[in-house]
Design a protein around this nucleic acid. Structure first.
Length: 189
DNA sequence: TGTCCGATATCCT
DNA sequence: GGATATCGGACAT
């Protein structure tokens, strides 16, 4: 099958559906005339308003997470610990400040450096604040997702608690909203 | 303006 | 397993 770019409607599905469906999709970044690509092998869902671990918990709306309040298919990227960026895709409509964090990629061309972690993948693909709010679905976008047609069987998807959000309390730090491809060596840690 | 702290990575033991 | 680097955003003052 010929690679097909993911359209807006993909990102308007329920966030947990998107988080799982992103596994096996290809992230493409055109950077200085080069094509950097990676197959997504690990994600986490952040379902704002009700999710204590989300930046948009309780409807919190700030300059940093403003893009989450727009339609799905846009990039939400920010810096943590003063040194790493985290790449997210906004999901749902305007009412839903939700997103999916990309935690790991399997290199698929042009990528140098480690991609088995959210901070490392951003460094390897040269992703920073300049990508904030970019529309992945725009026709002329240099940052987008591709479906190469390979089907992922439900049994090949592993689930578990999200990483590094102990502050969110017992319940929210334990829901199994982290998804990954089983036996993939590029999954983090 | 000032203080607090994180959706991590990496090095140390 | 534990420490810590390093800084921008959030929110209080």
């Amino acid at each position: 099958m010929k690679p097909r770019r993911l359209a807006r409607r993909f990102f308007l599905q329920p966030t947990l559906v998107v988080a799982k469906a992103l596994l096996g999709k290809y992230l493409v970044r055109e950077y200085r005339g080069r094509r950097l690509a990676g197959r997504i092998v690990e994600t986490e869902a952040y379902i704002g308003r009700r999710d204590r671990a989300a930046h948009s918990y309780g409807g919190r709306r700030t300059a940093r997470n403003e893009v989450e309040y727009g339609p799905g298919g846009h990039v939400y990227i920010y810096m943590v610990y003063g040194m790493h960026y985290q790449l997210n895709f906004v999901t749902g409509g305007r009412e839903a400040p939700e997103c999916v964090l990309v935690r790991a990629l399997e290199p698929a061309g042009g990528v140098r450096g480690e991609t088995n972690g959210p901070g490392k993948l951003c460094r390897a693909l040269h992703l920073d604040r300049s990508l904030y709010g970019v529309d992945l679905c725009a026709r002329d976008s240099r940052f987008y997702l591709e479906d190469h047609g390979g089907k992922i069987k439900p049994g090949a998807i592993g689930k578990g608690p999200r990483i590094g959000i102990g502050y969110a309390g017992r319940y929210w730090s334990r829901v199994h909203w982290r998804f990954f491809l089983k036996n993939n060596r590029f999954v983090s840690r």
